[in-house]
């Protein structure tokens, strides 16, 4: 890792903390699933923390993101609170979406998160539309569209990238290449070079190590500034890895990826471990400081999940509400 440029110690520690918050949230969500306390299934973001945090730390609260089925990380990174998130995962009234959305539709408008999406590639239009709003309404905000390598198969993405390029919209297409879409390796799903697809529209495209939060953040800061300055859109491939199965129920994975491969990423490429080691080596934090960060976060998360488990379900009258706006 190179020495941080535009970073003071406080920002660096915040990035560490945010990555730990995501990992902790996911660990607990997985425990909730395993102990049959969570309805349905959920997709873990663990392993990809540096992507969401590196990018969202370059955004302002008024900037927008769109997220995916693997969306808890984006949600935390954009500023969401544990209590409302756990409540949403458990279908409780206090959740961000009053329990109506759940894990795959979690959204947090106050922090600019327009929502997770259970349709692969489904948010590409939404993100581009948000960028159009910003342009038309004279806001200088930027939208980041998060999606996976699998979403590169969706035609919608190419239609909107074309329009975004024609109209120079302030949108950044962030492709999290975690090597797999469900149970299939991306090499069996995507022909040619991912970046070249965006470049065909004249969109400047970049590739970055998605396990290196500083590298991601450095690139994101540049691109966000340039997008605000009407130099967008941009496309970024972030090379990363998901630690868990496609969803929490995907336990036996050896038919599509090896245990050695998983171990390699977890042991050598972990974004939190590596960034923590760098913070210590650079004397930005001591090992004890980082331990206490992790412990404090775990405690906050435990309290939040305890609260959410005891919280009320929405009343039956809620079922017919919000179909139409007033």
């Amino acid at each position: 890792m190179k020495k941080a440029e535009n970073h003071n110690a406080e920002n660096l520690l915040r990035m560490y903390r945010q990555m730990v918050r995501i990992r902790t949230f996911e660990d607990i969500a997985n425990e909730l699933y395993l102990s049959a306390k969570m309805p349905g299934l959920t997709h873990m973001y663990s392993g990809q923390e540096a992507v969401a945090v590196g990018i969202c730390e370059a955004l302002d609260k008024t900037d927008h993101i769109t997220s995916t089925h693997r969306g808890h990380g984006h949600c935390v990174a954009k500023g969401a609170e544990f209590k409302e998130m756990f409540s949403e995962l458990l279908g409780k009234e206090e959740g961000y979406c009053r329990g109506k959305g759940g894990s795959m539709h979690i959204a947090d408008q106050d922090n600019g998160n327009l929502g997770a999406n259970a349709i692969v590639g489904g948010s590409a239009g939404i993100a581009t539309g948000a960028a159009l709003s910003a342009r038309r309404l004279g806001r200088d905000s930027v939208t980041v569209c998060f999606f996976g390598d699998g979403a590169m198969g969706q035609g919608l993405l190419y239609e909107v990238m074309n329009m975004a390029a024609l109209w120079k919209l302030p949108v950044i297409y962030a492709c999290e290449n975690n090597l797999y879409g469900e149970y299939t390796h991306m090499s069996e799903m995507a022909a040619g070079d991912l970046k070249a697809r965006a470049e065909a529209f004249g969109i400047e495209a970049f590739e970055v190590d998605g396990q290196d939060v500083l590298a991601v953040n450095r690139l994101a800061q540049q691109l966000v500034a340039r997008a605000r300055n009407h130099e967008g859109p941009f496309f970024v491939t972030l090379n990363t890895y998901r630690y868990h199965g496609h969803h929490v129920g995907d336990i036996n994975r050896t038919y599509y990826r090896s245990k050695e491969e998983e171990a390699h990423w977890k042991e050598n490429r972990d974004p939190i471990t590596n960034f923590g080691a760098w913070l210590i080596a650079e004397k930005i934090a001591g090992a004890d400081d980082l331990t206490s960060v992790r412990e404090t976060i775990r405690q906050e998360a435990d309290e939040a999940v305890e609260h959410a488990l005891g919280a009320a379900y929405p009343p039956a009258t809620d079922v017919g509400e919000h179909v139409y706006a007033d």
């Binding site: 349905g40 329990g99 109506k100 379900y313 929405p314 039956a316 809620d318 179909v323």
Partner: peptide, 9 residues
């Protein structure tokens, strides 16, 4: 209505 997530609904 769109199918809500919460089991209660």
């Amino acid at each position: 209505v769109p199918i809500p997530f919460s089991p209660a609904l």
